[in-house]
């Protein structure tokens, strides 16, 4: 009983990120900055519909990742346009396959909030998207939001798109 009590006390902080209608979490030190959403984005032709723009941040070239669009595309929901609007962009740090620190932008629609997460809050992934296990490490139950997947940042930003040639800007380009 004592061991169980000690386990439940092991907790760490995580950022709760509102991305469209979806909430995800990342580790405390994975979010390095937040910036206003009105950056100067440029579209990259033929890049995936969920990651179609790049922008400059402190001299680095960053992709702008739209997680809601990614999940919609994965579920075959047709997107009508490449969106480059965002209220806030979270600058995320991750390690690439060569062990180098890289940065990416994640579209947010509200400021991140900090949460304390412990093992006793672990729960199943939300049922709304069956592919969470491919892009998330785990999931915890937030008292206000419900199940919140903890995003696998490296998998999101390092995975090469499987997009194939399409004639329209549609969700035929699936993750």
């Amino acid at each position: 009983m004592q061991d169980t009590a000690q386990m439940s006390e092991i907790a760490c902080k995580a950022w709760l990120l509102p991305t469209g209608s979806i909430h995800v979490a990342i580790g405390e030190f994975e979010l390095v900055h937040i910036i206003a959403g009105w950056q100067r984005y440029i579209p990259v032709p033929r890049s995936p519909v969920w990651c179609h723009h790049v922008f400059l941040w402190q001299g680095c070239l960053l992709p702008l990742f739209d997680l809601e669009n990614y999940i919609n595309s994965a579920q075959g929901k047709v997107e009508t346009s490449y969106s480059n609007t965002s209220d806030i962009v979270g600058i995320i740090a991750y390690e690439n396959q060569r062990g180098e620190i890289q940065y990416g932008g994640l579209k947010l629609n509200a400021p991140p909030v900090i949460r304390v997460v412990s093992d006793d809050k672990m729960c199943d992934y939300p049922l709304s998207y069956p592919g969470w296990s491919k892009i998330a490490l785990s999931c915890f139950k937030d008292p206000d939001i419900g199940p919140v997947p903890i995003l696998d940042i490296q998998r999101i930003f390092c995975a090469k798109s499987q997009a194939t040639a399409t004639t329209t800007n549609s969700a035929e380009k699936q993750p």
Binding site: P45, S47, L61, P63, I156, F157, K160, A163, T164
Partner: peptide, 11 residues
């Protein structure tokens, strides 16, 4: 960036 590479991009 890796996540923007696709098999059919010319960029």
């Amino acid at each position: 960036p890796d996540c923007m590479l696709s098999t059919d991009t010319a960029i």
